[in-house]
Design a protein around this nucleic acid. Structure first.
Lengths: 192, 192
DNA sequence: CATATTTTGTACCTGTAGGTCAAGAAAGGA
DNA sequence: TCCTTTCTTGACCTACAGGTACAAAATATG
């Protein structure tokens, strides 16, 4: 009962992702949210309580999507090595083709002072953990299929892939010459 | 002639590095600077013009120092491979032992929206370029000495080391289990 | 239809960002 | 010694951050 909401909170979170992704947590103002979500300030705070609470929802949603995208590519068909290449190249391509150079919201948050907040840090950590686990699963599959050297420790390799992916997200933001990122992909795949 | 400054601008930049490193560019307020530098707001703006101008000085100084530290380790004595390990482990150790988990100021700036500013982006890019060049020089030396496989493309390997180092700076901020970073160092060195 | 409940728009609030300005203090030069 | 120049202090300014409060509007129930 009571008056029904005149907007879709779910869609609003979706829009919030874009705004926070562009401006960062600290750089986003209530006015940015009001303009971007198209809802009044009263509704905004009535629904989401605070800027941070909304950001937590947005970051979680972003992270889930990112992880799902990575898992989808890594669990695809074809040789594992090619799937790993596809996953990394997707990172590079989407990073470089983004006109706003937003990088990765999870990485940006980790680097921001906001990342020191326990709740936000935990969300970021969870994203990183799931990405690493996805890499590790792929590498183990490749090892079982004899595509990847059995000497290679999958945990080690997965940690390297995670760190590399994070580093590439940052490098992509500097709008550096694209060849640097292509080299990184080649280099890290050559090691497997 | 004229009244002499009552503070050392050079030392003030040094202190500014610490403040920006802790709070980020966007998160640092004029009041933070007044408190931290111990100079009045008038003197601050009279000497440094603006928050951004001071930050540029601070970021440049930080970057020069960081690059010099890396070069020093990489140009040291002993086998190249050990020097590379020492350089990466230093990154990990200083990153993990920092109680404030500040990561790397250049990386944090690249990830912040402020990194999109042309002047700041250029400083960050310069830091990354010089680090990559230092890695590349070390790898080439190792190759000449037969310590590193001649098949390995030094540019590729250097780009990988750079991306990995950047990624580790971010991961270190999440206060993740230290073993992840140790694994990354082992993994990336195993590839050379 | 009256009422209880929830949402919405608008006004309002306190604190601070990021500076600017004017007046006085501390030097060197004529 | 007076003048010019530069630095310093502190007051001041405008805009906006991040919310809160309230009255009006829209529903479900009895």
């Amino acid at each position: 009962m009571g008056r029904p909401k005149q907007f879709d909170p779910d869609a609003a979170v979706e829009k919030a992702v874009e705004i926070f992704w562009c401006k960062g947590y600290g750089g986003t103002t209530p006015q940015d949210l009001v303009d971007g979500l198209g809802v009044g300030k009263g509704s905004l705070y009535n629904t989401f309580t605070s800027k941070q609470a909304l950001f937590e929802k947005a970051l979680r949603r972003y992270g889930d999507r990112r992880v799902a995208g990575l898992v989808e590519v890594l669990e695809g068909s074809g040789p594992v090595r090619e799937r790993l290449r596809a996953a990394l190249e997707r990172l590079v391509d989407t990073g470089l083709s983004d006109p706003y150079r937003r990088g990765c919201l999870a990485v940006n948050t980790a680097a921001e002072p906001a990342g020191a907040d326990p709740a936000l840090g935990e969300i970021v950590r969870s994203v990183f953990d799931r990405m690493e686990a996805a890499f590790q699963a792929a590498i183990e599959e490749g090892r079982r299929h004899g595509e990847i050297d059995a000497d290679r420790d999958p945990r080690e390799a997965a940690s390297l892939l995670l760190s590399t992916a994070i580093g590439m997200s940052v490098v992509a933001k500097t709008a550096d010459r694209p060849d640097r990122l292509r080299r990184v992909v080649d280099a890290v795949l050559a090691t497997l």
